[in-house]
Design a protein around this nucleic acid. Structure first.
Length: 569
DNA sequence: ACACGGAGCGCG
DNA sequence: AAAGCGCGCTCCGTGT
């Protein structure tokens, strides 16, 4: 094995120590450089086929490198890897990964979002840390933690429960995710503020002065009040609105749209319209645009591994909740294109693959898995297939879901056995693991010990959580692999000569790069003459991700892919 | 003055 | 209060 590692961390003097570690774990040599000289040192090593960089936290080290025009090919993120290894049932007991609690800290990116330099000051890296702080950034701590990770991996490979290599793959993918999250923020989502403004004006009317409601909203509110016969009804407070609705004779128990829709009253239609407008204004209105869109880019803060299942979270601008209504505001720079791709029905496909369910894999062999399930004779319609599949993965027990899931159990026994077993373990308070070995937290109680109805309900909730965990978590792993492969493939495309996208930053202004990620969907921003090559890379990497995780399992991951100037119209 | 939880709704 | 998972954000109302 010719793996070369280079551990990056601060030395006591305030300089940065670069420690090369050989495949057997011994230190080969150590060199020092000033923090200012780090980007150049990293660039030099990368140009000679770089090492795998080992550092405390990608969100603390990588932004400065990207700002200096330096991209790295691969890394081992100690914080992200620790979070996985410290909870991995197979290695927990012997590897002592948990012995240094400072590695339990959260990401640095939120804190350093507005000052890239603050990633490693004397205050951060010497001795502090802990659950609420920042992981240690010094060289000694990094070397010690890295040694624990290698020991844990070796133990997992020798007598862990998982096939050797999966955990290693998970850590590599998770670390690549750390790199990608920072690169996504650096490049940003190309955002057409003028189009965003047009969408807002079309629905809300002209931008009002600060603090005031837009004219259109005001008019709709008046419609609602007139229909209620209540000229002073407050539409913005759920409690007051609920009282006003009941006074007007609408017997609702909440003000949510799904319940309002059930009632035939002249106030309902304008009220639903009002709620839509209020939501658009408060969540993604002009204030949001002012705060988050600069120089034609929206730069979201992604949090890799931010969800227990391994999915990413985001913080700040709500990157993972951009309403579809605003999708036309995602727009390529002049001379560039957006390559948008999402996977159709990713989670059930992942379930079919991990369970090795041949019948379900056959149903998943076309572009529409739900149609395949109808063709397999499990249910009568596509709509029923959808409800049954969601019920199987989420633990539906009542209504149409409760009626249809048993039919799935007959047709796809292996896939259903897998999720049913995960649910049974969760109900016992036990932990479950994803395909690559991310482990769920343990439950608080066991169904068989539950004495009150409340406890029984909670135990069943644990079961629904673990049922979903193995599927959602493995789907997140597939998506990480897809992106990690794609990231490398895009970096190998030639740079463009014309119309650089300056706002994407020095690393990405001349080459195709990832611009957006949302669980099962990516958008690549590519020079127009490379859009087709980028699209082909997106497709190839989806197929490759399937093989990387599941080997020869005969499950397709078909993409819905478009190349256009806008993400959608 | 600020913290926090719930309601509601956006995304997958 | 979605029948069934996972999130973040904004607002309101209450508690301190």
């Amino acid at each position: 094995m010719s793996t070369r590692w280079c551990v990056v961390g601060y030395a006591a003097s305030g300089s940065v120590a670069l420690t090369d570690v050989g495949a057997d774990g011994t230190v080969v040599r150590t060199t020092d450089c000033s923090p200012e000289a780090l980007p150049e040192a990293v660039r030099r090593r990368e140009s000679q086929g770089g090492p795998r960089w080992v550092w405390s936290d990608t969100s603390a080290w990588y932004p400065q490198l990207l700002a200096a025009g330096v991209r790295v090919e691969r890394c081992h993120d100690l914080r992200l890897a620790h979070a996985i290894l410290a909870r991995t049932a197979a290695v927990h007991a012997h590897a002592r990964v948990v012995e240094d609690a400072r590695w339990e800290a959260g990401p640095a990116s939120a804190a350093s979002a507005h000052s890239p330099e603050s990633g490693g000051t004397l205050f951060d890296y010497m001795g502090h840390g802990g659950a609420s702080g920042v992981v240690p950034h010094d060289s000694g701590s990094a070397l010690a933690e890295f040694a624990r990770h290698r020991a844990a991996l070796e133990e997992a490979a020798s007598h862990g429960g998982l096939p050797a290599g999966r955990l290693r793959l998970l850590l590599a993918a998770e670390s690549a995710g750390g790199l990608i999250a920072e690169e996504l923020r650096c490049a940003g989502i190309p955002w057409d503020a003028a189009e965003h403004d047009r969408i807002l004006e079309a629905d809300l009317g002209p931008r009002p002065p600060a603090g005031a409601h837009p004219a259109r909203m005001h008019a709709v509110a008046e419609e609602v009040r007139a229909a209620l016969g209540d000229p002073r009804a407050d539409l913005d407070s759920p409690v007051k609105l609920l009282r006003a609705l009941r006074r007007a004779g609408i017997p609702v128990s909440s003000t949510s749209q799904w319940e309002l829709r059930e009632h035939d009253h002249p106030a309902v239609e304008p009220l639903l319209r009002y709620k839509k407008l209020a939501r658009l204004l408060t969540a993604n209105g002009w204030t949001w645009m002012d705060a988050w869109v600069r120089e034609g880019r929206y730069r979201p803060v992604y949090v890799p591994g931010g969800v227990v299942t391994g999915r990413w979270a985001s913080t700040g601008g709500g990157a993972l909740q951009i309403p579809r209504q605003l999708r036309p505001a995602l727009r390529a720079d002049p001379g560039w294109r957006l390559v948008s791709a999402d996977v159709a029905q990713l989670e059930p496909r992942v379930l079919a693959a991990m369970a090795g369910d041949a019948a379900m894999a056959r149903a998943a062999s076309g572009a529409d898995l739900y149609a395949g399930i109808v063709a397999a004779g499990a249910v009568a319609s596509r709509e029923e297939a959808k409800i049954a599949v969601l019920g199987a993965m989420y633990g539906g027990t009542t209504g149409a879901s409760g009626r249809l899931v048993p039919r799935l159990r007959r047709t796809f026994p292996d896939a259903m056995a897998m999720v049913d077993r995960a649910a049974a373990l969760g109900e016992r308070g036990d932990r479950v693991s994803t395909w690559l070995g991310r482990t769920s937290p343990s439950g608080r109680l066991r169904l068989e010990d539950a004495e009150t109805e409340r406890e029984r309900r909670e135990a069943r909730e644990q079961g629904r959580f673990t049922r979903n965990f193995i599927v959602q978590g493995t789907a997140a792993e597939w998506a990480l692999a897809w992106m990690a492969l794609l990231r490398s493939r895009l970096a190998a495309l030639p740079e463009t000569e014309e119309a650089p996208a300056e706002a994407s930053g020095p690393v990405f202004s001349r080459r195709a790069h990832l611009a957006f990620f949302l669980h099962d969907e990516v958008i690549v921003h590519a020079p127009a003459d490379q859009a087709e090559a980028a699209a082909e890379a997106v497709r190839a990497c989806a197929a490759e991700a399937g093989r990387l995780l599941f080997g020869s399992a005969p499950v397709d991951f078909p993409l819905d892919l478009r190349v256009a100037e806008r993400s959608e119209s």
